[in-house]
Design a protein around this nucleic acid. Structure first.
Lengths: 305, 305
DNA sequence: TTCAATCCCTAGGCAATACCTATGAATGTG
DNA sequence: CACATTCATAGGTATTGCCTAGGGATTGAA
């Protein structure tokens, strides 16, 4: 079986025309190099050097072999170098899980931050929703993610809360924004809610349902849409009100529903943003970088926990 | 220290997304592959796979590493292949296809040339006739050959003309050699022709038949023999005339028919000598050597094309 | 929920390999 | 003819590669 070590010994010997000097250069004893060359010759089935009194002389087979050996070692170096630059985040792909709303808080800026520090890198923000992201985490397709969690569930996962995001009531009707909205008002409101597909596992919805149940009401929504932008736009047209994360509201209202406003709930409700990864996993430098940057961004916008 | 074996294990694991299946493919126990991957990860300083319940999942570092690993192994294979073909020049057998007449031009000298450069080698000149040689080429029993071709036929074969050999009229009767022989004279002559067995596919005969047909004559031969030496000898005895390659005539006349002479045909006809091998084949050093030597020999005697 | 199957890891043992030092044999050199 | 240099061999130790056996975790089905 050919080995890279044999090739190294071969090239040193070829250059120096001497096993002794090759061994010196490589820091081995002379018989060790001798043995490597012997094994290489055996595995190739061709003598590579003629042993003459003073030193060794490469055969024509060695002449032919040399450029190939150099190419193999060069490719090997290149392979190591490629991985080393991954390690130092010079190139490669960083994959980070992020649910829908979080991208509003930092998505584009996060990518910008990463690219600014590591211009060669590719960035992927994966996941439409925190639940889906969680699934990918569990299956190992994602190393780390930032998601919204309703509680500290999911065993096997290490969840580190980094910020909380208040849930607020949004409406285009100023009369409904005069004071904090109660469960009763909420149950009577005409609501448009986003994230239809994930309605059962969306953490904001879970928190909301819990609050309503405790007050003895059932959640009812008039309209179901998939993305929060659409929901906010509908609010802007006065067709319904909605409840969503305050951070998202602050960002979207001026653009999509300038005539609408927001007010807290009573009692106040919060969505928790957390960094999640498999318990016990050693995080890669890429993951650690993303955690740091994402945390900074989120905490600059929301209330740190 | 990086090793080729680690790369092999890595690629198998990467492809199968499973240590167990990689081990199966490579014929090892699963912990052995596991250990190789672990060592590779250690030496690269980067985790390559995330171990998740069912199988393993490559990290982005692994994605980056993979093409490099493949390149290293490819270079290694190439290195071994290169030496293997060198080896065949030093210990193996060089087999070269050559048709009957060509051996007159260089056969013995060619073998001498090869042995002088590669004393350890065995040389075989294969083939009685260009047609038979072509058959062996087609079946892959010969890598390369020098044959006479009537045209550029034979799909799948790469044909490189290297020289042309005039067909000349040979006679012991000086009166028939005073001027170039025409189709009419040819059709009226008493001819002895060699290569009886291959009469239909012999390129010299094909060229000759074509010329006669165009002039409205049918080829008729008085005597058919197998080898050209016999034919020339019969010409020397005045029993018949013949048409053969000029190169062969020049070589054989002094020895076998000193009283005979030759004259061109009108119009002049030529037999083409060409190097033939399977299209797309990578020629071994042995083959390249033979091509070079044979071409030199032939072109020293005949007119290069 | 439970159970069996799957898959990876760890542990411990054996064999092969890598490397060392010491020494012998061959070949040029003074 | 000694001497210096260089490679090969011998023998011992440490490391590595590979194996089997068994444990823990995840997955998919009952």
């Amino acid at each position: 079986m050919l080995s890279l070590h044999q090739l190294t010994c071969f090239l040193a010997t070829y250059e120096h025309r001497s096993l002794t000097r090759a061994a010196e250069e490589l820091g081995y004893a002379q018989p060790s190099v001798s043995e490597q060359i012997r094994n290489l010759e055996k595995s190739l089935g061709v003598p590579l050097f003629r042993r003459v009194g003073r030193g060794v002389i490469p055969t024509t087979a060695a002449d032919t072999f040399r450029p190939h050996a150099e190419k193999v070692l060069a490719a090997s170096d290149e392979a190591q170098r490629a991985v080393a630059s991954i390690k130092s985040l010079e190139t490669g792909t960083i994959r980070f899980g992020m649910f829908g709303v979080a991208r509003l808080y930092g998505g584009a800026g996060l990518v910008a931050d990463v690219l600014e520090r590591h211009p060669g890198v590719r960035v992927e923000l994966v996941g439409q929703h925190s639940r889906e992201v969680q699934e990918n985490l569990r299956r190992g397709r994602l190393e780390v993610a930032m998601i919204a969690v309703a509680g500290i569930e999911s065993e096997g996962m290490s969840i580190t809360p980094i910020a909380r995001d208040e849930l607020v009531y949004i409406s285009a009707d100023p009369s409904r924004l005069t004071s904090p909205v109660t469960a009763k008002q909420l149950s009577e409101a005409r609501l448009v809610m986003p994230e239809t597909t994930w309605r059962d596992s969306d953490s904001a919805r879970i928190v909301l349902r819990r609050m309503l149940h405790e007050a003895g009401y059932n959640p009812t929504t008039r309209i179901e849409v998939e993305d929060i932008e659409t929901a906010v736009e509908l609010v802007g047209r006065g067709l319904a009100d909605t409840v969503t994360n305050k951070g998202a509201a602050l960002q979207l209202l001026p653009r999509l529903a300038p005539n609408a406003g927001w007010v807290s709930l009573r009692p106040r409700l919060y969505d928790t943003m957390a960094i999640v990864h498999r318990t016990g996993a050693t995080l890669s430098p890429a993951a650690q970088l993303m955690i740091e940057l994402a945390t900074q961004r989120i905490q600059a916008i929301l209330e740190p926990v």
